[in-house]
């Protein structure tokens, strides 16, 4: 287990490297997940979701830059570009659904949308 907390904190004092990026991405992902779980507003959930996807992008690019793969293999970067595209598509679909719901119900609060139960 090379990932003890003390280890990580110690290595953060060194010049910027993979660890810094990973800790940053993990925190960003955690903030996003927290937002998704606690936000009531659907737009807020969507924004928190974008944070999670951006954490993934940070991870991918950091791993491409510092990771074990050869720098000429652009897998990580290509993956990140596709994730950005997908995030845009998902946001478009999500906003369309939220907009249609708002027109109908005059609310975008996720916990007021509760017709389906059982």
């Amino acid at each position: 287990m090379g990932f003890m907390l003390g280890d990580i904190l110690e290595s953060l004092g060194q010049p910027v490297g993979l660890r810094h990026c990973l800790v940053f991405a993990a925190l960003l992902f955690a903030v996003g997940l927290y937002g998704v779980l606690t936000r009531r507003n659907a737009i807020g959930i969507l924004m928190a979701l974008e944070l999670m996807l951006n954490a993934v992008n940070a991870n991918l690019v950091a791993f491409w830059r510092y990771g074990p793969g050869p720098r000429e293999a652009l897998n990580g970067q290509v993956f990140a570009v596709f994730v950005i595209t997908m995030a845009a598509a998902e946001a478009a679909v999500g906003l369309a659904i939220i907009l249609a719901l708002f027109r109908l119900r005059r609310t975008v609060n996720a916990d007021e949308v509760n017709l389906l139960k059982g």
Binding site: N59, L60, A62, G67, P68, G69, N75
Partner: peptide
């Protein structure tokens, strides 16, 4: 992303 990062392959 973690799996990619650890191995360097997709």
């Amino acid at each position: 992303s973690l799996i990619y990062g650890l191995t360097g392959a997709t």
